[in-house]
Design a protein around this nucleic acid. Structure first.
Length: 913
RNA sequence: GGACGCUUAGCUCAGUUGGUUAGAGCACGUGCUUCACACGCACGGGGUCACAGGUUCGAGUCCUGUAGCGUCCACCA
């Protein structure tokens, strides 16, 4: 057995074991029919991504679940991969090109896409390497990528299927246009931001056949640069202020001359602004709808990149929309049409990726009518899919209630090109619904037309989410039966648990559920079609100021640095300990440090065990329990094993309820306080005696072995190392190959040979602990160092003395005492009242009677207050009548104890006078 | 405008179904290099559980309201 070093050095240990695990293919997800399957698909990070604290949390949790599943004897699969992240990746590569003063158009579509692939080969997937550093036990041989040829085929297959099932259509509609990325976006990719802008109050002179009207109608707008696209003024039909004006016209004040009709439409809010609304159908959703109702023309004054086009008039043409806004305001002023401008805060939709305001824009796009909406609601409502925390199901359901068709086309080059071909020379703008169904004009298939020379493929690609929504089954070979068999589809689908952030509940979670229900195992019960059974939503990691950690803010520490400083296990333990279920996490590096400290503590406890020598068969649980000598069990032995069972049970419960931070806290508390601070310390006297040594070591082995197993999912590296060093496993076997005993199995195992754990001993030990604490405090109060040269005296009853005498060696050791002697009387020594008698410090000559009095009086005051409270409760008839017997009994006992203590304190004080 | 979450020690947070004197980590103070660990040990100080009502024998915990912070959804030009 290699000797354990003084402190834990993670670096080499992590490297060594990760390599060993990979070498042995320990993470391979295998179909093992005798075993229960447990599977997780990773939320695929962007192929451009680097590891963030969010990933650390998310993937640590997945690894915990997977490793625990292995320990529970399940066949576990954690399927990794990356997402091609259309806009993000294309942007990254275009940025590289821009450095060389080039654009994607210099290369053309095919060459550019090649460039992206080359970039991906060289720099993509860094994040997967980083996950290995974290210890992620993914089945790397299955690593998937949404642009892989096989995966791509599945994406196109789904498009064709949905088209044939009538869920996909093409249409000219208002979309969210990103002028930076030059593509349409789905509603989910638009985030609303409050913006401080200006509200312009503009007046329009009414046209008068006589040519001398001095009547005006006023509107308010934040976007004067779109006025050249105005085609009408709308008022509410019931608004008496404007009733007389409906049907008249006004002259557009700037831009090409145009007479706009004043129309009535109920969409206008009478209360807002002036009550009159300028209608710019090309640049506003509401205006567009009003325009449709009134058959108004659509005048688009913007280029796709957000500059004004020639329809905006010569003064504005070519200007950026924001510059044009100022210019338009000036022009209005000159024309006498600007009545007022005032600061105005409103919400503006921004492109999530490019962080620029989006433009509503009328374009031809491909749309999806979501399939299986009702069923998707049902499976969550009925609990076939369970959300943790449960409250997210409400958010999910609300979104599904109000769901809109999904714009799935993107005007990008990097992505799955939509498998639609148009007959050469066809005008795509004017295609009708019927044309789309006509195979002579439009071809829709996975493989394309037989005579490609006569066709042009659709230029658009699919939204990235329109590929990743298939992730749980497309990564398992679906729909190809051979591939599915190879991947173990039947065995691993539906997956067990999805671990993700609530921020992608709409983007991804909801859509995967609908996709699974639509495509997998049609006709079978929902339990077989859903993509996962549980969804665990992590919290969002925030910085000290409560801001979301993000790359752009630069407020996220680099997890790799944290791994270097604290070890992967320290980072994992730390992050989990501050991540309660369902709450956002305020990141604190000192918690990561405390994770590292815990690892070191674990390391040293095992080191202590090792230094006490080998004691027999450690390689199996049976070997260890066979070494237990039941006849020699004392209170501490009973208590520590009882607490071990309690802790094991608590961790079981935590896993059942996805309460990982509670599990970590239970393990931390048990190991540090109960085991290290108490049991190991009391062991030190037992280990001196040949009579008690063997049993004590067997108990330590039992505890350490179980702790390593329980801790392994959280801190895999150090537990593997210690497991091997202490020889708990069969040689050549990893810790994960050892089945983890649950609490009752462990109880049965350790009770072989007639041992019954005595729960009452836990209380006895607590009693002794409290007594030792009192003794230590008495010493500390008199500024005595922890040297063992003090003698304590005690005045106590026979029963209490019996308990003390039985534990004398450990008490004196733990309290740092030369001895503890029973006396009938003690004079002039500092004292303290304990539940086991009045304890005196043998230092009479050095005692300051005044200070003693103050100290005792403080204690007396405190206990008197408590007694008053307890008495009041017991004096309350309602309490004694209605409280349960156990509570009542507890209160009475408490009162008796408190009174005894007060009497003793009073006596001590009197003696000092 | 709608929904949800949070408010407990200086800081970050636990606190299961209401029940003895509300806990942890960090920070702070004092003392300890005690033969596993100073990445440690011991002892200690520190909280009217946001506020106001209510239910109850009993409320940090349940109910109602208020305030502040945060998130999501919708959005009016």
């Amino acid at each position: 057995m290699a000797e354990i070093t003084k402190s834990y050095e993670p670096r080499e240990v992590e490297k060594k074991w990760y390599a060993a695990w990979l070498e042995a293919k320990a993470f391979a997800g295998k179909v093992e029919l005798g075993k229960e399957a447990y599977s997780i698909v990773i939320p695929p990070p962007n192929v451009t991504g680097v590891l963030t604290m969010g990933h650390v949390l998310n993937n640590t949790i997945q690894d915990i679940l997977i490793r625990r599943a292995r320990l529970e004897g399940k066949s576990a699969l954690w399927l990794p991969g990356t997402d091609h992240a259309g806009i993000a990746t294309q942007t990254v590569v275009e940025r590289e090109l821009r450095k060389q003063k080039q654009t994607r158009h210099d290369y053309g579509r095919e060459k550019f896409v090649e460039k992206v692939w080359a970039w991906r080969e060289e720099k993509g997937g860094i994040i997967l390497e980083q996950l290995r550093r974290l210890g992620a036990s993914c089945d790397w041989d299955r690593t998937a990528f949404t642009m892989d040829p096989a995966y791509s085929e599945r994406v196109l297959h789904v498009f064709v299927e949905l088209f044939q099932r009538g869920h996909i259509y093409r249409g000219k509609r208002m979309v969210n246009w990103c002028p930076a990325s030059l593509t349409a976006l789905s509603d989910e990719e638009v985030i609303m931001k409050p913006v401080n802008g200006t509200m312009y109050r503009v007046r329009y002179r009414l046209n008068d056949p006589a040519g001398k009207s001095d009547t005006f109608i006023e509107v308010k707008t934040t976007r004067p640069e779109t006025i050249p696209g105005d085609v009408a003024i709308a008022v509410h039909p019931d608004d008496p202020r404007f009733a007389a004006l409906i049907g008249r016209t006004v002259r557009r004040p700037i831009g090409p001359a145009y007479d706009m009709l004043i129309i009535a439409d109920p969409a206008v809010d009478k209360e807002f602004g002036t009550g009159a609304l300028k209608i710019t159908p090309a640049h506003d959703r509401t205006d567009y709808e009003i325009g449709l109702r009134h058959k108004l023309p659509v005048i688009d004054v913007l280029h796709p990149n957000g500059t004004i086009n020639e329809l905006g008039g010569p003064e504005l043409a070519g200007m950026d929309r924001f510059a044009a806004r100022k210019k338009a305001a000036e022009m209005l002023k000159e024309a006498g049409a600007l009545v007022a401008e005032e600061p105005y805060a409103n919400n503006v939709g921004y492109s999530e990726r490019a962080d620029v305001p989006i433009e509503p824009r009328l374009t031809q796009q491909w749309w999806l009518r979501y399939p299986k909406i009702e069923e998707a609601k049902q499976v969550v409502r009925d609990g076939q899919i369970k959300f943790y925390p449960e409250r997210w199901s409400k958010v999910y359901l609300h979104w599904l209630e109000n769901i809109q068709d999904w714009c799935i086309s993107r005007q990008l080059w990097w992505g799955h090109r939509i498998p639609v071909w148009y007959r050469k020379g066809l005008d795509r703008e004017t295609l009708t619904e019927a044309d789309l169904q006509n195979p002579a004009i439009v071809h829709v298939s996975q493989t394309g037309p037989a005579d490609p020379q006569n066709w042009d493929q659709e230029d658009d690609v699919l939204d990235t989410w329109a590929s990743s929504w298939l992730w749980p089954f497309a990564t398992l070979g679906w729909p190809d039966p051979t591939e599915m068999k190879k991947a173990g589809f039947d065995y691993f689908y539906p997956t067990s648990t999805l671990v993700t952030g609530p921020d992608i509940i709409f983007f991804w979670v909801a859509r995967m559920i609908m996709a699974g229900l639509e495509f997998v195992r049609p006709g079978e019960p929902v339990e077989r079609r859903i993509p996962f059974k549980n969804v665990y939503f992590t919290g969002i990691i925030r910085d000290q100021q409560g801001r979301k950690m993000s790359k752009s803010l630069g407020n996220s520490p680099d997890p790799l640095d944290l791994i270097d400083t604290y070890g992967a296990d320290g980072l994992r333990f730390g992050i989990i300990s501050i991540a309660p279920q369902g709450q956002d996490i305020r990141f604190q590096e000192d918690r990561i440090e405390s994770g590292k400290n815990f690892c070191n503590k674990l390391w040293n406890a095992c080191r202590f065990r090792q230094m006490n020598g080998e004691a027999g068969d450690n390689a199996t649980l049976g070997g260890i329990t066979a070494r237990l000598e039941r006849a020699k069990f004392d209170a501490d032995d009973h208590a520590i094993l009882d607490r071990l069972l309690t802790t094991t049970r608590e961790v079981d419960r935590c896993f059942a309820e996805f309460e990982f931070s509670a599990a970590v806290q239970a393990l931390y508390g048990f190991f540090w306080n109960d085991f290290c601070d108490w049991y190991v310390e009391v062991s030190k006297s037992k280990l001196q005696s040949p009579d008690t040594k063997a049993n004590c070591l067997a108990i330590q082995d039992l505890v350490l072995r179980q702790m390593l197993l329980l801790l392994h999912p959280f801190i895999p590296f150090i537990t593997e190392e210690l497991w091997q060093l202490l020889g708990y496993g069969a040689s050549g076997r990893f810790i994960e190959e050892t089945p983890l005993e649950n609490a009752s199995q462990l109880a049965t195992a350790s009770s072989g040979g007639g041992l019954m754990l005595d729960h009452a001993q836990v209380a006895a030990v607590e009693n002794i602990k409290a007594f030792v604490s009192k003794a230590r405090a008495l010493k500390a109060d008199h500024n005595l160092a922890s040297r063992r040269d003090v003698t304590f005296f005690i005045i106590t009853g026979d029963r209490e003395w019996a308990l003390l005498a039985a534990n004398l060696a450990k008490i004196t050791r733990m309290a740092g005492a030369a001895g503890l002697e029973r006396r009938e009387t003690v004079e002039g020594a500092p004292a303290t009242v304990t539940t086991l008698g009045t304890l005196y410090l043998d230092l009479a000559s050095t005692v300051d009677a005044g200070a003693e009095k103050i100290r005792l009086q403080k204690e007396l005051d405190a206990i008197t207050k408590h007694i008053a409270g307890t008495e009041a409760r017991l004096a309350n008839k309602a309490f004694t009548d209605k409280a349960p017997a156990a509570v009542l009994e507890g209160a009475r006992k408490q009162l008796a104890d408190q009174q005894a203590k007060r009497a003793e304190l009073g006596r001590l004080l009197t003696a000092l006078r």
